Simulated assay, not measured.
Amino acid sequence: MNIHLSRISLCAVALAGLAIIPSALADTATITVSGRVLPGTCTMANATIALDDIEAADVSLGQASGLKPGTLNFTGCVGVTTIDLSFDGTGDAAQDDHWQNGASSDAASGVAVALLDGPTGTTYLRKGDSKSVIVAGASSARLDLRAGYYRKSGTLMSAGAVSTQITVTADYK
């Protein structure tokens, strides 16, 4: 019986020892991976071109006057080689289809807004026109523009506010 009691005592001591020894703690972690596959795109920013006030007599006939530079910027380009742009808005048939003055109050008459491509030159951008901008895999691109007043020869003009909005749609390739 002593032997049997000793075995029981040894087992009890062994079990008590296991309770005292700290057990190894298990821990878990999660790895989260996310992303997007983009179909070649850029972010196009709105462009504002503020024309300087101009004397009515200084608005040249048949050409843009009071030109101010502007830029249409594209950033965050991924997988883009070319941006095909199209221009839309309201053309003014009485002003050689330049952009119609859409000022909501105290609007000038007999004058439109001319939009020109690039920092120099005489290439006008009108409703329905298109323009391509080469990106060639870069992360950004830009289209330099100029805007000014336009008055067709033989048009009566009155002083007032001038403004227009032109919608530019980009197709990324």
Rank of each mutant, 00 (worst) to 15 (best):
G17P: 00
T90P: 00
Q63G: 01
A56L: 15
R36F: 10
A16V: 09
M44T: 01
I49E: 00
G40S: 11
T41H: 05
G66F: 15
V78D: 09
R36S: 09
G40Y: 08
A64E: 11
I20P: 00
T82R: 12
I20Q: 04
V80D: 07
T90A: 11
A45Y: 01
D88M: 13
L15A: 08
S60P: 01
G66A: 14
T81D: 15
H98Q: 14
S86P: 03
T32H: 02
F74K: 00
Q63S: 03
L38F: 12
T32Q: 02
D53Q: 12
D53Y: 09
N101A: 12
Q100E: 14
N73F: 06
Q100D: 11
L51H: 02
A50S: 07
T30R: 05
G89P: 03
S34T: 10
G40P: 02
A56K: 13
T82V: 15
L51R: 01
D88F: 12
N73T: 08
N46K: 05
C42F: 06
A56V: 15
A26P: 00
P69D: 12
V80G: 08
A29S: 10
L51N: 01
G70H: 03
A16E: 02
G17D: 05
A64K: 05
G35K: 05
L85Q: 04
L15T: 04
T81M: 13
D58Q: 13
D88H: 10
Q100G: 06
G70E: 04
S23K: 02
N73G: 06
V37W: 05
N101M: 12
D84A: 15
Q63H: 00
F87C: 09
I21N: 01
N101E: 07
V78K: 11
T90R: 06
C42E: 01
F74Y: 03
A47M: 06
D52T: 14
N101L: 13
C77A: 13
A64H: 06
D92C: 09
G91N: 10
A50F: 04
Q95D: 11
G66E: 10
P69T: 11
I21T: 06
T71V: 12
T71P: 00
I83K: 03
S34V: 07
S34G: 06
V33T: 09
A16D: 01
T71L: 10
S86L: 13
A29M: 08
Q95I: 14
A94E: 08
D58T: 08
A56H: 10
G91S: 15
K68F: 07
Q95V: 15
A47V: 06
I83R: 03
L85D: 03
A26T: 08
P22V: 01
S60Y: 11
A47C: 07
G62E: 08
D27P: 00
G70N: 02
T30F: 08
A45Q: 04
Q95W: 14
G35Y: 09
I83M: 06
D27H: 04
S65A: 13
G76T: 04
R36L: 11
T48W: 02
A56F: 14
V37N: 06
N101P: 04
V80R: 09
C77N: 09
G91Y: 06
Q63F: 01
Q100K: 14
A50V: 08
T43K: 00
D97V: 11
I49H: 00
P22L: 05
G79W: 14
D52V: 14
W99T: 06
V59Y: 07
C42A: 07
T82D: 13
